[in-house]
Nucleic acid binder design. Sequence first.
DNA 1: GTGCTTGCAAACCCTTTGCAAGATG
DNA 2: CATCTTGCAAAGGGTTTGCAAGCAC
Lengths: 161, 161
Amino acid sequence: MNTEERTFERYLRSQGLKFTVQRKLILRKVFAMHDHFEADDLATEFRLEGKKLSRATVYRTLPLLVQCGLIREVQFGENHAHYEQTMGHQHHDHLICVTCGKVVEFCDDSIEQLQDDVCAKHGFQLESHSLEIKGYCNHCWKRICSSASSVSTRDDEERAR
Amino acid sequence: MNTEERTFERYLRSQGLKFTVQRKLILRKVFAMHDHFEADDLATEFRLEGKKLSRATVYRTLPLLVQCGLIREVQFGENHAHYEQTMGHQHHDHLICVTCGKVVEFCDDSIEQLQDDVCAKHGFQLESHSLEIKGYCNHCWKRICSSASSVSTRDDEERAR
DNA sequence: GTGCTTGCAAACCCTTTGCAAGATG
DNA sequence: CATCTTGCAAAGGGTTTGCAAGCAC
């Protein structure tokens, strides 16, 4: 059993909850995901692998993983939840390309520091923060500049897959 | 006709769209709102005033107002959209109390500058950004510290209304 | 008139929940 | 064996959409 599993099990027991097969499978899948994922991504993968694990269980388990600090919820401006691992990933924020949807992670200590200052100034006790910058990535920006008439949108990209 | 209306009308015409009664009513209501609002807030107000204006029309109109720059969408970590006016409101970000839900607006030029730098470093062309800091407001933090056993949650606050 | 808009209701997506059957400690 | 958990399917919010009737230009 690895670190995440021990952390999760300890958390569950501390709450009088049980470390079930399903919860273990979800934990493993979450830690096998690269980058960001949605609740539905997990459910779909389980279905594809032929593992019986209902959407409801996924939706019930993710908040537990958030509560014990193994994952965090991130906002990408869409009206549904996205998650990412916290372990082995220091805190970071996201740059999102509004054209192709590409997400770039970045970390900036100065910004973090200034956020602490803002909190202090307004008498807030900081708990978490999320900074989401939207713009055009290098690739898309060049394409827009070179041919303003035929811009590929995120929809086009998705259709192309 | 005031500035917002002229802006909206000009935008609509430029797109071959029409400046209907409903669109004018929604625009006015939006500019009569204080702070932040949700699509449903508008629909509900119209209903209360006895004005016939369907939810569908509100949902169809808000994106138009975003596209012409009169309002912007803001994320508060809930899985549905919130909006705020842009005119007369310089760019700002939000501090959100995780306990009582209070939202405080703030503006920090240094943070803005650093965001520009981050974009430049990653070859992004900045389009917009949103910084959302969650924490405990002064009031809630004191209450938590003084009585760790009886913390009022946002749910409690809502129930109390 | 032509074409964009509206209202309605149904559909949609993401998420939550009640319940009876099944697992866990 | 008491309790927590699961899967199912139904319900729940917020949002979108097809369609026929209604307006704007």
